[in-house]
Design a protein around this nucleic acid. Structure first.
Lengths: 141, 141
DNA sequence: GTTATTATTAGTAATAATTACTAATAAGGA
DNA sequence: TCCTTATTAGTAATTATTACTAATAATAAC
């Protein structure tokens, strides 16, 4: 479980460093993603944040997600589904993705994955992600 | 390098099994993807196939890609880029993806990746993919 | 605290990628 | 060779995301 208060604190610092403003929209969007393990898409974030901030626009949600990603506070889950899914958990873990319903489950790991040696042949390595895909128990019925 | 003739042979068999027709469009789309290691997107496949088949439609390319994926002859490369990229190489390998230009390079491996044990908690595992992301040499200049 | 600056936002329009629809076509079995 | 029906071309529609613009509000300077 992510400590939301400390996440907000990091947002505060990173915004100051990047000359970006600490707006309530940024705080709410980050809070929403950090408080769930469902890896929501932009639309879901929008619907959820609207409950406490009825006039927020979908555009703002998309822009805010991009900003938070730039600041390194959240990242997109790699998938081949039409909608991008977001994750605020920066601890070493990977994902089980259901090919039928699109559900994303966390698989916790002791360490981040080491990139294969051949990787460095192609450029500077910034992240290494592992996805496990299959059919979740719910979809199997 | 993929043996294209044997790929077409597999397409033939799989189509017969699945009560699907062996159309020239399917052959050309598969040929195109199997003959490159650039992991092209739908638009690129379309432009390329149009050279030998000028009246093919983009819709057919999309439908054909989906069919070939269903038959297990090609698969989508996991990424967070706006366009889906396709791969016909079924041997054990993963991808280096450049975050700047979107280039996808193959990283060959001796064996397919073992899914972490926790994976099975969530459902039936069908595939395990590893992506290495960074900035490629060309983009570093 | 007040004011000024300008990053950010709401609302909406536009774009990009993909999917759906329909009449015409052609693959493959009889 | 004919028939059945899966598939296609051409185009329209949908979906996810991004861009635009005037209005707003976060922060710094006074």
């Amino acid at each position: 479980m992510i400590n939301i208060e400390s996440k907000i604190e990091v947002l505060k610092q990173k915004c100051a460093e990047a000359n970006m403003r600490l707006t309530p929209q940024r705080i709410e969007v980050l809070k929403m993603i950090a408080s769930t393990d469902t890896h929501p898409d932009a639309e879901t974030v929008y619907e959820s944040v609207k409950e406490v901030m009825p006039f927020i626009s979908l555009d703002t949600v998309y822009r805010t997600l991009a900003s938070l990603e730039d600041l390194g506070l959240i990242f997109k889950v790699d998938n081949e589904l039409p909608k991008s899914r977001y994750d605020a958990d920066l601890s070493p873990h990977c994902h089980f993705i259901c090919l039928k319903c699109g559900a994303v489950y966390d698989i916790h790991m002791d360490n981040h994955i080491e990139p294969p040696k051949e990787s460095f042949k192609y450029g500077e390595v910034l992240q290494t992600n592992l996805q496990v895909k299959g059919i979740c128990h719910k979809c199997r019925g």
